[in-house]
Simulated assay, not measured.
Amino acid sequence: MDYARSSFCLSDIKSIVIFRALLLGDLLCAGPAFLSLRAAMPQARITLVSLPWARALRSYMPGCFDDFIEFPGYPGFPERKMDPTRLPGFLREVQEQKYDLALQMQGNGYIANSLVAAFGARRTGGYYLPGQYCPDRELCMVYPEKLPEIWRHLALMRHLGVTVNNDRLHFHVPEEDSQALRELLKAHRIEQPYVCIHPGTNAEWRCWPVEHYAAVADILAAEGFQVVVTGSAAERERAQHVLEYMHSPAINLAGETTNLGVLGALIRDASLTVCGDTGISHLACAVDCPSVVVFMRSETEGWPPLDRIRHRLVCSISGVTEQMVIEEALDLLHLARAPYSGPATGISAISIFHQASI
Rank of each mutant, 00 (worst) to 15 (best):
A344C: 10
S291T: 06
R55P: 09
P75L: 02
G276T: 00
K81L: 11
A30I: 03
E70Y: 04
G131D: 11
I111M: 13
L129A: 04
E301N: 13
T345G: 09
C275T: 15
S271T: 08
I219R: 15
H334E: 14
V142M: 01
L335H: 14
I280R: 00
L28G: 05
A112Q: 03
L129R: 15
Y143M: 07
E223S: 14
V325I: 14
K186H: 13
M61V: 06
G25T: 06
S357K: 02
I350F: 05
Q192M: 06
R310P: 11
F8G: 10
D2E: 14
V314G: 04
A265K: 06
A284T: 08
R152P: 07
D218H: 08
Q179G: 14
Y213N: 04
A221V: 08
V49K: 12
N108C: 13
F19C: 09
S178M: 13
T47Y: 04
V228I: 07
I280C: 02
Y143N: 08
Y99T: 06
M82K: 08
P304R: 04
R55W: 09
Q179F: 12
M82E: 15
S281V: 04
D269M: 02
P249V: 01
V292T: 11
D2F: 06
F19T: 07
E96R: 15
S15Y: 02
V320Q: 00
R308N: 14
F8W: 14
Y110D: 12
V162Q: 04
I219C: 14
F90M: 01
E256C: 12
K98R: 15
L115C: 11
A338T: 10
P193N: 03
I46W: 14
C134T: 07
D2V: 06
A215D: 09
E328A: 14
A356G: 02
M157F: 07
Q106T: 00
G255Q: 03
C64F: 03
L22N: 10
D83K: 15
Q226G: 12
